[in-house]
Design a protein around this nucleic acid. Sequence first.
DNA 1: CTGAAAGCGCTTACAG
DNA 2: CTGAAAGCGCTTACAG
Lengths: 343, 343
Amino acid sequence: MAAVTLQDVAMRAGVSQATASRVLNGSNRVPGEGVADRVRTAARELGYVPNAQAQALARASTGLLGLIVHDIADPYFSSIARGVQAAARAARKQVLLAGTDRDFDIEREAVSTFIAHRADAIVLAGSRQSGDLDRELEAEFGRYRANGGRVVVIGQPLAFGGAVEPENHFASAELADALVAAGHRQFAVIGGPGNIRTSVDRRNGFVEALGRHGLTPLVEVSGDFDRDGGHSAARRLAAALELQPGAAAPPVCVFAVTDVMAIGAIAAWRELGLSVPRDICVAGFDDIPTLRDHTPSLTTVVLPLEEIGSRAVDLALRNHDDADDLRERIPGRIVLRDSTKLS
Amino acid sequence: MAAVTLQDVAMRAGVSQATASRVLNGSNRVPGEGVADRVRTAARELGYVPNAQAQALARASTGLLGLIVHDIADPYFSSIARGVQAAARAARKQVLLAGTDRDFDIEREAVSTFIAHRADAIVLAGSRQSGDLDRELEAEFGRYRANGGRVVVIGQPLAFGGAVEPENHFASAELADALVAAGHRQFAVIGGPGNIRTSVDRRNGFVEALGRHGLTPLVEVSGDFDRDGGHSAARRLAAALELQPGAAAPPVCVFAVTDVMAIGAIAAWRELGLSVPRDICVAGFDDIPTLRDHTPSLTTVVLPLEEIGSRAVDLALRNHDDADDLRERIPGRIVLRDSTKLS
DNA sequence: CTGAAAGCGCTTACAG
DNA sequence: CTGAAAGCGCTTACAG
């Protein structure tokens, strides 16, 4: 990596390294025009590319922003990542990406590495149950923040730092209300893992709202937080409900806590010969872009995923004079579509 | 960012900075046991986190791997990114992520920044027309490589470096063959932008294979390389073909050069009252995971997206003794599903 | 406006 | 086995 050095540029331009440095990055003081030109020319001719590592060491900040997600191939996270990416670019930061596969050890490792790289901020998009932030992670974040690092979480509680929180609980309740208003009376739930905050909030919000209408889910099952989790949970649900193709009664309305799980569920039911919304209805959550063209169209709660990502970056980069701990709540918008349509 | 320093650790352990350094990262020479213990204890007590920037400066490499994609929210790229991520983790590299929105200026900027950060390798996943790699980019890559940087491209030609190339041309030809074998005789094509290599290869492979069967597409239209591009192209196609719901004749079979475009097309046709595969058939390319549960199920060419990503990383990190320029061809696998089923 | 010099936090020959 | 010292490539007070 013996690239062209600032010193090389300075020599060729016949100035000191200090001057070359000042010319090449916007120090306010503009040097004599001739000088600046010579330096810039020399830099161009030599193909000089500043060494960001050295700059980082000499300055205070690295210009790095760490993003931690469960799985970048999951459309929920990739949409968020897109927003993070865009906002980071606007702020001239580089994104360091890590995927954890929902493994807390890997997550802790990612945090350590980001801290080692002295990222200016870390955005943690994986969600977990409250209080579950282990001591070790918490201690590291503490030191990190003490040294000027910023941390922002998406969709999970944290005793400190910034947070952008989709209103999972509230929006799920609204969804339940809308479904009841649409005429549904029999419900079931496909939940996610019990240690994922987002999953639990959505389930609770929904079930509590049902309770206010004097209703209770007939069955609750749960599975992994992905397509296959929804698929297998849906099979169990069908068995528990003794669902039959073409049965007479009004269909049960299932709330799957994510769109991706809902899609897996529909696929499972289709394999059983059950049709949505005729034999069974289902609503999801997230409004995943790639899934918008699904048939039947999916009733869901629209979350502005990209915006969530960019807001997280904004929070992370905001000056934190006094109010250091900022939370931004992101409301969801209910959209009723074919998958819950009563005939 | 005044974090704990190696010096701090050394002092507390009562050893020199050099010794502390040797203990804390696996220098082969094992110091006296007592010493090592003291250093490690001091590091733990102080919460020492090595400064990767400083290490990078002192060593040769940064441990950074740059990944450039068009759009991380596009499932094609997010699947690749997942593979890159996994392979990078296995190689203990950190992923630097950039999205270009298909803007070549932004792409060039991303490359510069990655080089400035002295990434050990750069994986370029955006695809473009051959020869279109502009001078400036080429020059930068040249210097980068001269300084030890590795570059690997996915799905595009490059005069140097490594490349992993999905066999777009060949697989599309196979798809055409399979469709003809299934009984299709009338074809049309929904292509992508003319400056995207992947798009052009797929279209050409398909059309050339048709030619070998003495067939020619009735119509060709094209659109942006995304869902909306497929959607609008499909409308134009329907108009050109004067498609009517419930028409008698055997349906035209459309090849959309990506699954995502195919999905957009199906949505457009549905809006027009046309049904797939009854009124019109369609095949895609990629086998996007999230789309596997689509109805009708989509005939497509399966590409091992994650593997493509991890192979790219392997290539980038491989020792390049003599054979510096490596290419890996990735075959596609044809899967006929409902969307091209003839009744 | 410009330059000499110290310093950012590590690693690594080179001696001992 | 261990330490003193130079060096990685920049930035930035501090003088001039």
